[in-house]
């Protein structure tokens, strides 16, 4: 009998809720074996915000100063 664990939930953008790409959907035990660059995209707010929201944030920050 091989009881498989369910897949982990999809990563969502913190601001708009869209599905994030570049974030591995694995359980915590496998996540620990992955390298840092394999767990999130290499950009600011990678793994937290989607690329569109990140761009919006950067533009807003640039227009503030």
């Amino acid at each position: 009998m091989l009881f498989k664990k369910r897949k982990s939930a999809k990563a969502q953008c913190a601001s708009c809720g869209s599905m994030l790409s570049g974030v591995a959907r694995v359980r915590a035990t496998q996540l620990r074996t992955l390298a840092k660059t394999e767990k999130r995209p290499e950009r600011p707010y990678g793994g937290v915000l989607c690329s569109a929201c990140m761009r919006r944030t950067m533009i807003a920050r640039a227009r503030q100063t």
């Binding site: 950009r43 600011p44 990140m54 761009r55 950067m58």
Partner: peptide, 11 residues
Amino acid sequence: CIKTAGRDAGK
């Protein structure tokens, strides 16, 4: 300018 996309974003 400030770069808004990519890994250099915000610089």
